[in-house]
Amino acid sequence: MYGLIHNALRSMVVQEHGEPLWQLILESMEIEADVFLSMRQYDDSTTLSLIAASAQATNMEVDAFLGSFGYYWLTVFAPKDYGPLLNLTGDDPFEFLRNLNSLHERISTSFLEFRPPVFSVKYISDECIELQYNSTRKGLTSFVEGILRGLPIMFNVTMVVELMERSAVQQGEQSLFRIMKVGAQRGRS
């Protein structure tokens, strides 16, 4: 994946555990330089091993680690550099999710080798949707789950996120979330 993702990971590990641990992670993977270029595409295996090594170094299961990474991505990292873009994506969580594809599509003109996820939204009621996540990659459902858990923070609402199904498909992964708004909604924070 793009270096951007690695740098987000680095930022999280350093912020929560300090620079030495990150250096240790790189060492354990025998990666020499600690700089990833945001706009360069790195091999997916590098990304996945970085994630696995970070999980190990922080004593977490990979899925739990991915979850916290997704949360960090949405609530800390993306707003810093891509705040305006996030803001354009929607006024409320459902609209935001409906526009996720558009968001990633826009990115594609800059990131030529981009392989974005595809989301589809099905309204169950005004307060409840089902979100399907389709990816060409395996193993990132927990990352999505983490991001979804960050949404209530971003929009200052209460929401219940539930992972209904998760299945490997021929090339990648597919999973289904049910997301429900709870109580009076207050709008974007």
């Binding site: 270096g3 951007l4 740098n7 330089a33 600690d34 700089v35 990833f36 270029l37 945001s38 706009m39 550099d81 891509y82 305006p84 873009l85 354009l88 826009r106 990115i107 003109t109 800059s110 990131f111």
Partner: peptide, 23 residues
């Protein structure tokens, strides 16, 4: 929009490169 994203990302790239040159 694309441009905006591009610019933001390029700013990140500049930061990355600054870090790299620093190192």
């Amino acid at each position: 929009l694309d441009q905006r994203f591009h610019v933001a990302t390029q700013e990140l790239m500049v930061k990355d490169l600054q870090k790299l040159t620093g190192e």
